[in-house]
Every structure is written in C-alpha cells, then in structure tokens.
Simulated scan of single mutants.
Amino acid sequence: MKRAMLPFIIFMLFLVCSLVLSYTYIQIIPQQLGEGRLYICKLPVSLSLPEANKEYSAEILIDPETVPLWGKRGYVYATLDENGTQPIYYWVKNSTTIWIDIPPTNSTSIKIFIWYCGLDNPYKDYENSTKFLSVYKLPHSLENTTVYLKFK
C-alpha cells in the first residue's frame, strides 16, 4: 500500500510545484477601499530605440497566453512612469497589438507601462489613431505584470 502511494505523492508534488512556478510573476497587492473588487494590471515594456532624441511610434505585440489577465483587459492606456501619471499617445489596433508614441528621449532604451484590466481610462484624449502615420517594429520585451487587487 505504501509503495502505491509514493507515485501519487510524487505526481501531486510535481503538479503543485508546476502551478506555483507558473504564477510566481504575478504580484497581488490588496488595498482596502470599500466594498467590491477591481483588478488593475501594469505591464512594463522595455524598448530599444535606434536613435536618441527622436520621436518613434512603436508596435507592441502581446501574447495573451503569457500576459496575466490580458483577456480581462477592459480599458487600455500607456504611460512613461510607473505611477501612471505621465500618459503617452496610444492606439489599440486589435486584441493583441498596441501602438504607442514614444516622445524624444536622450537614451536609446526606454521603459513604458501599459495599464489594463478593470480600469477607467483617465487618459481618453491620448487614444488617437491619427497620431500614427508610420509605426516601427522596435525590439521590445514585456516584463513581469503586476496585478493589483483593489476593493471599492
């Protein structure tokens, strides 16, 4: 009987470990704001620019399989800062493609933040498809998403 249990225990440990490791990049921070729940997701994106001090419009491709809660994206907007207070122009082209306008910077690498999930969009004026006449496919990397759970 004990020998029959050993494979089952090993299988369960393997299953639990694989589930834990696959979700370690999600950080959930509860904040008490009242009643109800709201998910706010922040996705950092690092971009490599070909030239400094030049404005670029870039295409960001998102794989919904690797970005947590992307299927519940709701409103989307982009900012230059981690606190979400410096908006940049953007356009949601389709369910997996976002265009963003990168202002001139004196560096060839920049980090922007894409906000999504159950958010109200405070920067609706920055959603503008006419801003994007030519869009570059710049090298970029999607970093770990932070998921905030707020109670309202």
Rank of each mutant, 00 (worst) to 15 (best):
K2D: 15
R3V: 13
A4F: 14
M5L: 15
L6E: 14
P7C: 14
P7H: 13
F11H: 05
F11W: 13
M12G: 05
M12I: 15
L15H: 06
C17V: 11
S18D: 04
L19M: 11
L19Y: 09
V20Q: 07
V20K: 06
V20N: 08
L21G: 00
S22Y: 05
Y23P: 00
T24K: 11
T24G: 02
Y25V: 04
I26C: 04
I26K: 12
I28H: 02
I29V: 14
I29A: 11
Q31M: 12
Q31A: 15
Q32W: 12
L33P: 00
E35H: 12
G36N: 12
G36Q: 04
G36W: 10
L38A: 06
C41W: 03
C41I: 09
C41M: 11
K42R: 14
K42C: 10
P44M: 05
V45A: 05
V45T: 08
S46I: 02
S46A: 09
L47S: 04
L49K: 01
L49D: 05
E51C: 02
A52E: 15
A52P: 09
E55K: 12
Y56C: 05
Y56A: 04
S57V: 07
S57D: 14
A58D: 07
A58F: 09
E59L: 14
I62M: 02
I62C: 06
D63N: 15
P64V: 02
P64K: 06
E65M: 06
T66Y: 09
P68A: 15
L69V: 09
G71K: 02
K72C: 08
R73V: 05
Y75R: 11
Y75Q: 13
Y77M: 07
A78K: 01
T79W: 08
T79V: 09
L80Q: 08
D81V: 09
D81L: 02
N83K: 11
N83E: 14
N83R: 09
N83F: 06
N83V: 04
N83M: 09
G84P: 07
T85P: 03
I88W: 03
Y89F: 12
W91Y: 15
V92C: 01
K93W: 09
S95A: 13
T96D: 10
T96I: 11
I98S: 01
I100M: 03
I100R: 00
D101Y: 07
D101M: 13
I102G: 01
P103E: 15
T105V: 11
S107A: 13
T108Q: 12
S109A: 08
S109M: 03
K111I: 05
K111A: 07
I112F: 01
I112S: 01
I114D: 02
Y116R: 00
C117D: 11
C117L: 02
C117A: 12
L119V: 08
P122A: 08
Y123I: 02
K124A: 13
K124S: 12
Y126V: 08
E127Y: 06
N128D: 14
S129Q: 13
S129E: 14
T130P: 00
L133K: 04
S134G: 02
S134I: 10
S134V: 09
Y136N: 10
Y136V: 01
L138S: 02
L138N: 01
L142Y: 03
L142P: 03
N144Y: 04
N144Q: 12
T146C: 02
Y148A: 10
L149W: 08
L149C: 04
L149V: 06
K150G: 00
